[in-house]
Design a protein around this nucleic acid. Structure first.
Lengths: 340, 340
DNA sequence: CTGTTAGCGCATTCAA
DNA sequence: TTGAATGCGCTAACAG
């Protein structure tokens, strides 16, 4: 066995009796002007010494780390996980690694992460922006650091952004409810904040679709509430004289909260209430009844974001744009047909 | 605005009219022998120039990157995601970043990732081993590269390993079934492979617990089958003359598959069959009936793994050991009381 | 208290 | 076709 000492490129050069630069060429597969036996000798020396290159040194020289940063609110959220997986798959093909950081929606944490990753010289960022950090993004733009946003639009920034067509998602839900004869439609979303594009758009899309379908927009049916007080709010709504017959859950967490409420309150699906959830959930199929869901094209979104970032990194990018991907409705049994 | 050129430490030094090394000391907070106004001047120069340090160069010199690698089969699996999150939280406190790679259980991919991350000089690895790469791990051991395993035990390797007490998990399930009067207990697990510690131990723990509780071990009730043919296999079992009254799902995926089968076959929970699932699932509460589950202490596992790795990195580690964490049973409504 | 010097491991001119 | 020299940006002795 070789000693514990780190083998460098000059050790290999010495061993093969040639110069460092030739070895370097070999490593970078520039075989063009290299003698066949030189090549052979280098190859042998490398395995004999158990040499493995130090990419750090290489990156320092080349100013490229083949590493990107992904900044996300919380890796535990299903949508984020899927998007990240898609990004990693795309990166894998380009031999790029990803460093992912959880901000928990904390702008300061986000900023700290971005700065540290910049210090580590990552080649670019894909971020689910926490909002409120516009100046940081702005500076990155000026420094021409490759950057792609996912899921949330920062209106004043010219940055590639990819997300689902959220308005279309609510529209799909409304259309499906309407098709089954529902007219009293409700929606429940977590607390709205200005930069939370998906929630905002899903709500506005819901209202628009109501109008398009000549359905009444009833303010009492529009719930936006923190998850921990959502059940209470639902309780009020279903205690009303004229409760809705159908409700859209704005995301997976909302859906689970709603289901818990219905279970506790003995409100039966789909007889007492029809339901559609935005976001895929693993139990949609096996629930009683199967839950009609609208899936986000998470993999497409992740893939596209990666591609856009690669374009920026390789300097082949076009003007920044917002890319929207279509949602898809999976009809199951949670919407009752009213035959009205 | 400053030009697009990269500001380095010598620019700062020049600007502040002192030497690079003093600036370097400032950056590393070695203020001890530094004049107050020197400090002040450096500080001003830094913000004036908009300097941000290049950690790559620093890492090259210090032989430490403050980055670790996490090798996992698939980030989409709930358990992995939670463990990773816990690791990242622990890393965050030490200002360490994580690069995570998905192997999809492919040993070659795993090896490639580990080699590339070594080339990037990561300070250590936390891996969910895919098995079959014993020689790679062995080499890492010899090179004294900090390494911690999660979830799977490689018996011939002296490496810190942290996982749930899997046998105890099955035991908890058996005890709960027994408490409710069940005697005909089945288990379903995905295909067994030699290095898949959790599945193996959960099965062996199940059998042991059966004996401890003086319950019969019936081979027909022990299903180990790929997910895509599991339903078929269940069909056979429930078509038997004397089917089980209770069944343990070895993990979350198995549980979902089972629930789908029961739904399709109109086998009612918990009247026709009682069920417990190992692994937390987001719908355990809201399902009808609520599913009794046994949760893996994913956060504890991740945290411990990170701590062990830090110890190795800081050279404060003790002998490699296997650490097991207790599972926890959450009783809900999916186990019927038989009063036999 | 601060500056000088010498690398870390590699890639890249430019000569030979 | 190969080798010598230079520097990426930073840290770490060691002087002064």
């Amino acid at each position: 066995m070789t000693t514990t000492k780190k083998i460098t490129i000059s050790d290999v050069a010495k061993h093969a009796n040639i110069s460092k630069s030739t070895v370097s060429q070999y490593l970078n597969e520039r075989y063009e002007y290299m003698g066949a036996q030189t090549k052979q000798r280098i190859h042998e020396s490398i395995i004999e010494l158990g040499y493995s290159p130090n990419y750090l040194a290489r990156s320092l020289k080349q100013k490229k780390t083949f590493t990107i940063g992904i900044i996300v609110a919380n890796i535990l959220h299903g949508f984020s996980t899927k998007v990240i997986r898609a990004i990693e798959d795309a990166c894998n093909e380009e031999n790029i690694h990803t460093i992912v950081c959880n901000t928990d929606e904390d702008p300061e944490k986000e900023q700290k992460y971005m700065e540290m990753l910049q210090a580590k010289q990552v080649d670019g960022f894909i971020v689910f922006p926490a909002g409120e950090n516009a100046k940081v993004y702005q500076r990155m733009l000026e420094q021409k650091i490759p950057l792609v946003f996912i899921d949330r639009i920062m209106p004043d920034l010219k940055i590639d952004t990819v997300l689902m067509d959220n308005e279309r998602a609510s529209e799909l839900a409304v259309e499906n409810f309407a098709k089954h004869g529902h007219e009293k439609l409700a929606i429940a979303t977590p607390e709205l904040k200005p930069y939370m594009t998906p929630r905002l758009e899903r709500l506005s899309g819901f209202k628009k679709a109501l109008q398009t379908n000549n359905l009444p927009v009833k303010e009492d049916y529009l719930i936006s509430e923190n998850l921990d007080s959502l059940q209470e709010r639902l309780q009020h709504m279903f205690a009303m004289e004229d409760p809705p017959t159908a409700i859209l859950a704005n995301n997976d967490l909302t859906l689970v909260e709603m289901l818990e409420f219905f279970k506790k309150s003995d409100i039966r699906l789909p007889d007492d209430i029809s339901i559609i959830g935005i976001d895929d959930v693993p139990f949609a199929n096996v629930y009683h009844p199967g839950i009609t869901t609208i899936e986000q094209p998470a993999f497409k979104i992740g893939k596209k974001a990666a591609e856009l970032l690669f374009d920026q990194i390789n300097d082949t990018a076009s003007e920044p744009e917002v890319y929207r991907f279509a949602p898809k409705l999976f009809e199951r049994e949670s919407v009752k047909t009213l035959y009205e």
